[in-house]
Design a protein around this nucleic acid. Structure first.
Lengths: 347, 347
DNA sequence: CTGAAAGCGCTAACAC
DNA sequence: GTGTTAGCGCTTTCAG
């Protein structure tokens, strides 16, 4: 009984041709000068039987699916979840749906995902790319399918992107630490060649070297369990020259770091100043509250989706690609307040 | 040049019929007794030109899309993000992709989403349902499309579901508070008729009444800004009878609650014991660490996807629906440790 | 064992 | 202004 009616059924019942119905459905009634009465009649009937077009068939015919593929590192990371939420929102408002997937920063997996998305004829891609997918992305671009990167980019392929100024953010954070009197500043990052991680590292290095200090870098392998990360950080904090500040390069390193600091019962900021990349609800509520580099997630989302929507509209014209770099904000909290006792340079 | 080749192209080049190619592609070679040489030849050629079937066309023909629609309250809520992540993982392993969307607990929006998903011929649905979508879900069920609810359910429609034992979780949490000597226990919840919230409320009420204590319930409207929630909680804590414990019914109420408590500079647990529904990284690191009701997110995800996969395989046979109710775990931390000074009943 | 052909539901040139 | 018709790429019955 609930047999879905097709455009032909409608045409048959109304004794007109499917074309006419199609035109009316697609708002081309005026353009095709279809009589107002007919239009009304058709619309009335459509509403009556609750007809809904089969978008699969439509997609097969038009080659458009109105679906955007969103590939993030992991949807369970609050940074990506927040961005995904907003992108979803904006996409819906523009008639697009999102198919998402988590790449796990895994190249093979991501290649497969792109492949699957292609089979689905996804109209556009938003990707926080892992290393090594240059070819697949090029192939997309060559096929005229719009792609936008965010959070990081790939150096060997020209793609629109929205990132933040990782280098300066990191540089400024370290300068801030130095200005509060810290001399032995550790940097905990991921063992990753991705641009955002490399830039954060460079910013740290530049600031440290400019101040004539020594580098203390700890690189942690990707995809470790939290417990393992904590263990690594604990070791780092115990082993090396006594640090008076530590800088975490991502939010979850920061969280693990706080766990490590807690295990060691260090007094922040007196024993150790702490600063971390990416803000997080946790950092404001923590005692002491944690200084963090806030990424403009809303703006990132807005820019990403806008660039993509534009490209999709303009048929992916070969305009010069845009590479937006947004500023961040250093949110200074209690974990880096200069000690109340005046510092004396003690080296 | 990169012209996608179709099954007919392949057939033409190889001088065979599309049927044969299709059979080989779908692993029906043996069944159809196609010669091994032919199969190899075709497979070789397919690999060579990198042919990929057009799943749109396939879906149009078969009516299957291998897509699961996942509708959560909000993907930016860590509880849902974690579950979404795991469901995605398991779905992929079984050849399914996920289209997700956030319902915002908005009935109208959710109805529209279901409508859109239907147009896309999504194969199955995983929904944390807002109120008022009974009809739409019934219509899905009647059409033989599998649906699984989680986190909450709708009373007027028979659908498989995976939930937790909200009533007992809440009841036990309150009993725990009472056992540490708390007498004036506040309950901060959402102004919502959803089953999970109602059950949490009932559990609280039962425990309070059994102990001969008075109820102190604060209901907060849905979709408020964090600032507003904090303001409400601050007022609640200031206004009412001096509470010696507070119980938050969701993780984000808990987080807002901690902000409120901080504003008021209350001493936890000495001034106020705190307990909250849903565990969160934050709660372990908070000083003092916060007692929380841990939901078995992995198990929830596993059960949900398994039930759905089974239903999709078995052609949604009208088996009796399953309504799984999983236990939670009360993770006792410092925010509810009994005061070290022996308590004296002082009323 | 393999092929011909119909058709899923829709769109858009092209006719009239 | 409206209808005819040819596919989009695939699956599948039915013939041979």
């Amino acid at each position: 009984m609930k047999k879905r009616s097709s455009i032909t059924d409608i045409a048959n019942v109304l004794k007109i041709s499917p074309t006419t119905v199609s035109f009316i459905l697609n708002g081309k009634a005026r353009e095709k000068r279809i009589s107002v009465e007919l239009v009304e009649k058709v619309e009335k009937y459509i509403a009556e039987v609750g007809y809904k077009p089969n978008s699969l068939a439509r997609s097969l015919r038009t080659g458009k699916t109105n679906i955007i593929g969103l590939m993030v590192e992991s949807i369970s990371n609050p940074f990506f979840a927040t961005i995904a939420r907003r992108i979803e929102e904006l996409a819906y408002k523009n008639g697009y749906k999102i198919i998402y997937s988590s790449t796990d920063n895994n190249t093979v997996r991501t290649k497969e995902l792109i492949q699957m998305f292609r089979e689905r004829h996804v109209d556009g891609y938003i990707i926080s790319p892992p290393e090594g997918i240059e070819e697949d992305v090029s192939s997309l671009i060559n096929a005229g399918i719009p792609v936008v990167f965010f959070d990081r980019y790939l150096t060997d392929v020209a793609v629109d992107s929205v990132t933040i100024d990782n280098f300066s953010s990191s540089y400024d954070a370290v300068k801030h630490l130095i200005s509060t009197g810290c001399r032995n500043i550790g940097f905990v990052t991921l063992d990753s060649l991705q641009t955002q991680m490399q830039d954060r590292l460079s910013g740290y290095e530049k600031a440290i070297e400019e101040a004539g200090l020594t580098l203390h870098v700890k690189e942690i392998g990707f995809n470790q369990s939290t417990e393992n990360i904590v263990r690594h950080i604990v070791t780092f904090l115990k082993r090396s020259v006594k640090l008076d500040a530590i800088f975490f390069a991502t939010n979850y390193l920061g969280i693990s770091g706080l766990k490590a600091i807690r295990t060691l019962e260090l007094d922040v900021p007196n024993d150790l100043s702490v600063i971390t990349f990416d803000d997080h609800e946790l950092f404001e509520l923590h005692k002491p509250s944690i200084t963090a580099i806030f990424q403009p997630v809303d703006e990132i989302s807005d820019k990403v989706i806008n660039i993509l929507l534009n490209k999709m509209k303009s048929g992916a014209k070969h305009k010069k690609e845009q590479n937006l770099v947004l500023p961040t904000e250093l949110v200074i909290r209690d974990s880096t307040i200069a000690a109340t006792v005046p510092m004396v340079n003690n080296d």
